[in-house]
Design a protein around this nucleic acid. Structure first.
Lengths: 233, 233
DNA sequence: CCCTACATATCGTAC
DNA sequence: GTACGATGTGTAGGG
């Protein structure tokens, strides 16, 4: 539906949208999206499922429409099933209204996420320099698997944490793994390497402070090496 | 537009959506959203502005439509202006198509986010007890700004981390700040205080373990104090 | 059901 | 303009 509307949200925060023409979407699960004609994919306001939508008409309503609310032709009240958050949409003028049953979507197929970076680096440890070798991917520990366990040219044990984007959380994660691995006398001393396509300055600072090396990975370059090797066989 | 379509995205990753009925939205800035009839506000696929949309018809196209592509009535190619990411939408059957000019949206008014909590607490350090004073908000450090730096009644230095919802990562954040500040002989010893509207039990336990005090903030109460003070002047 | 980790995040703000 | 944290983050996977 395209309509002149005003919107109020009450929940984790309160928010208000003054009267203006907008796109209103009601999905099959009752969720509601309020979009403007610009910005990115995020709606101005919305209600996530599970939620229930109730539509009131002026004649249903005992109370007179006061000046503050203005004159509306429909008032939607959307209530979240668990949190009790509410979204109230007052529809002042309907510009267009269509409805379709779409059915369940077959879903999205993705390619090129963190798991692929890990596989590519494991296949091409040379990207870290000559003489590096893979011990194993997803090396198990009590607090979760280490992305890659490797040996440097001197034979020293190295834990590698891989991220698409290197931020502080990733350095903390690597810290926990290295602390734990260094308690194992068979592995210690274990160094840490933080590898990502982009590493934020704060993360680089913290990694340096913790004694970790940082490596910037180039996905396309790694893929190129991988393809070249594949063609040799 | 509501239509049977298939979608391919190439950019940071590659993704594919098989043929199915979906909602296609084209905004005034040329951005495109592909929504299914369920899920939350996030589209299955999209292209963010700045981008350009080009629509091809079968008769425009020299090449024959092969079996893989299937028969389409429109093919949209959306290219991102900076990154070169592309979104290709093949429209197989149009179920509905409407167009409206909405104009610029007056925008969303929000209330109750972390910035407000920080401002309210900085204005009302008494909420922590008598004799507390503000040193400064957003006190800068090498790993990011500390929400509030304060002095307790005894003149001791205190770092305060404020969160809407107090969880473990907030305690970790405070830990990093306090560690760093304690290396500065002009400030040390620095205590830590974890302040939030709601503090999860896990976070409270971890904070206690790290030697931090926890404070629960009441947003409405702080706002009440603030309003009362404002009325005195 | 809760917790964890990832994501084409987007958005505002301070520097 | 860039960097950074916050978000009504959403979402998928595992215990």
């Amino acid at each position: 539906m395209v309509a002149e509307c005003s919107v109020d949200y009450t929940g984790r925060l309160t928010a208000h949208l003054p009267r203006a023409p907008r796109l209103l979407i009601v999905k099959a699960d009752g969720s509601v999206l309020v979009h403007s004609d610009g910005g990115s994919y995020k709606p101005l306001n919305w209600m996530a499922p599970p939620c229930t939508l109730r539509v009131a008409l002026p004649e249903d309503d005992g109370r007179a429409q006061d000046a503050e609310d203005g004159d509306w032709v429909e008032e939607w009240t959307v209530t979240h099933g668990k949190t009790g958050d509410t979204l109230r949409v007052q529809v002042h003028e309907i510009l267009s209204d269509t409805s379709h049953e779409l059915g369940v979507d077959p879903g999205l197929i993705k390619d090129g996420v963190e798991a692929h970076l890990q596989a590519l680096l494991a296949d091409n440890m040379d990207a870290l320099g000559d003489g590096w070798s893979l011990v194993r991917r997803e090396y198990p520990t009590a607090i979760g698997p280490v992305d890659i366990l490797a040996r440097d040219p001197e034979g020293g044990c190295v834990a590698i944490e891989i991220k698409r984007r290197g931020e502080i959380d990733g350095v903390e994660q690597l810290t926990r793994y290295v602390d734990l691995l260094n308690r194992d006398p068979l592995l210690a001393p274990v160094r840490g390497v933080f590898a990502a396509q982009v590493i934020k300055p704060q993360a680089k600072t913290l990694a340096g402070d913790r004694g970790f090396d940082c490596v910037t990975l180039d996905y396309d370059e790694l893929r190129g090496i991988d393809d070249k090797e594949a063609r040799l066989f």
